[in-house]
Amino acid sequence: MTQTTSFDAFTMWKNVYEKTESTWRDAIQDTLGKESFAESLGQIQSQYLQYQGFVNKMTESYLKQANMPSRDEIANVASLVINVESKVDDLEDQMDVYKIDTSREIEQLRKGLNNLDKKLDKVIELLNKSIVAQNTPKVTDGPLTTTALNATSTKK
């Protein structure tokens, strides 16, 4: 009995990858963990930064000669806008605090007025009672009662 297997490129790639990865994993991790690797990275970084610094200087010099704004100058303008926006934000925050304070004060004032109103109502009520009491003849037992009654009838 014969068995035919078709060629599958993807399975082959996967197998190659898995075998390579498992074979090299430890060796690569060992290398990455070595101090000498960090030193090499540092050297590459240094060269790259030297090149980049040179490009930055050249670009800046060219822009200056061409009377064009440099990246720094444009960034300064952006910073000014950000500062203004920051101040607006601060003002908004202060307005919020002010709003809270104002509404708290108004609320306290309203309560105070309500209390005053109630007190005034009481005072008026007491005054009314006192006036009524003054104008109303005193009704008591005994001879005074008769006198009072006579006085009332005389007035009529």
Binding site: E35, F37, A38, E39, L41, G42, Q45, L49, Q52, N56
Partner: peptide, 17 residues
Amino acid sequence: NWLDKRYFQLDKLVDTL
């Protein structure tokens, strides 16, 4: 390891980029 002060040029990197 990679960010070791002796090798990683932090200030130069930030100042340049």
